[in-house]
Structures are given as structure tokens and as C-alpha cells.
Amino acid sequence: MNKKRSRLNNFYLFCYIGLLPTVLLYFIFRIIPIVDTFRLSFYSWSVLGVGNKFIGLENYFKLFSDKLFITSLVNTTLFAILVVSFSVAISLALAIMLNNKRMERFSPIYELIYFLPVVTPMVPVAVMWKWIYDPQYGLLNYFLSLFGISPKAWLVYPELALYAIVIMSVWKIVGYYMMIFLVGLKNISKEYYEAALIDGAVGWQVFRYITLPLLRPIVLYVLVVATIQAFNVFTQVYVMTSDIQGAPGRLVRVLVYDIYENGFRYFKMGYASAEAVILLLIVLVLTVFEFRVMGKED
């Protein structure tokens, strides 16, 4: 009995000591800052620590009359909707094509090519797209001119710039979701398709009644992850639009850019934290949504 007990204590000791580094790092650099963000959002706060004081919900009230914040929220939402729907639709179509039996031989080379933008870091990619979008000498305007379309100042006008960044972001991520869908498609048992074939199902029906329902968990997962990622868009916006016309970030203002500017250019840390809380709530809603849906699937 005693021996068993000491064995058990040993087990526990190993568990707790083994988990210590993970738990410690996770709490210090993640959980505590997350909780602290909520606290900060009720304060008027600056880095220097002068004039920090509790102001309740004032930051939040201010946020919803802040034109720049509203603009960023609208822009980011629009960006997320566009990027997520296009990238998921395109990557699903690509994956279905590659999953064809007669594509098997060529699939690896296509996978390699479509994965190229995925592994390349964002900054060089954003830099080269900025050059492609150049209003005077850009490659895109050159191609459009071949079809008689007049050159456009892609990154200069806010509406156009948002779409330009959407195109570039879809280009960057499509290969990743394609691979995830491809793994999902490969996991669908051949028997389902054979059964469908015997029942006389054709092309679209097979997709609608066999592929899509069986792929549902993965599609949902990708939708949620992609949406969260899209709401956090920053790097490409920062690199591609922040220096144009000397109007830093006024053009395609997105949520994280607004947080960054308020927090680290104007040092309104409390105010920026309130914005961050809004972003966090968006992420949490999406996470809960995923858990609920996934829970049902299981």
C-alpha cells in the first residue's frame, strides 16, 4: 500500500515538474497579458505611467464614436469576408481537381507550386506585390493594358487598395487550405463513391451529397481559422500602404493597424487595449462557434 502510494506520488511529481516550464511560460507571456488587457481597457494609460487612472467604460464609449475605429472595423470585416470566401472556394476547387484519380501523377508538382507562396514570409511577398501594383510601371497595369483596360492606381485609392490586398492575401494562402482539403478528401473512403456510383449519382450530386457532408468538419475548421487570421491582418497592410502619399495608414485602415498606431505611436495604451478587447471578443465568438459545431459533429 505504502509502496503504491509513493509510486503514485512519484507520478504526480513527474507530471507537475514536467508541466512546469510550459505552464510558467504560458501564464507569464500569454494568460497574464490577456487578462491584463481587459484591466488596461478600463484605464487611461500611457507607457510613462504618468496620469494613469481608472476611467471605467469611457474608452469603449469613445471607441464607438471614433471614426477611424469604425472605419477599421468595417474594413477588416469586409476584408475577412472577401478573403475567407474566395480562398476557401478556390482552394476547395483546386483540392477537388487534384484529388482526381488521373491527376495523381501530376499532383505533387502542383502542390509544390501552390505551396510556394505559403512558405514565403509575408514581407518580401508584400514588397513584390506592391511593385506589381505600381500605378505607373506595375506589371498588373501592363497586363490590363493588353486588354485595353486603362491603368489603375491600385494602392492609392482606399476601395481599390482593399481589393488589391485581398487578391494578394488570397494568392498567399490558397495553397495552404488546398493541402488541408486535399488531406481531408484523401481520408474519405472510396466505398462512399462506389456506392454513389452504383446508385447512379453524377458529378455535382456526388459533390453535394457525398464529398461536402463528409468534408464538413474540415471546411468548418478552415473557415474559423481563416476568419480569425483575416481579422488579424496587419503585415501586408503595413508594408503595402503605410508609406503611400505620406498618409500613414489612413488608406486601408484595419483593426490591428489601428491598435498598433494608438498603442505604439500615440501611446494611448488603455484606449488601444479597449480596441484589442473588441478584437479578442470577435476571436472568442468564432472559437466558441467552432467548439459548438465541432462538439455536435463528434
Binding site: 497579458p33 490577456i34 488587457t37 495604451m269 484589442a276 479578442l280 476571436v283 472568442l284
Partner: peptide
Amino acid sequence: GRSVLFLVLLATAMIPLECYMISLYLL
């Protein structure tokens, strides 16, 4: 404590750095 720890991990896994970078910076 196993399930509590795991739940905390699971619940916060999705939260991106951008959401808490200000307090992290202060830390």
C-alpha cells in the same frame, strides 16, 4: 488539475498575439 489545465490551454489557444500585445509589451 489535469482537465482544468487542459481546458485553459484549449480555451486560449486561438487567441492571437495581436489581442494582447499591448500588455505583453508593458510586461
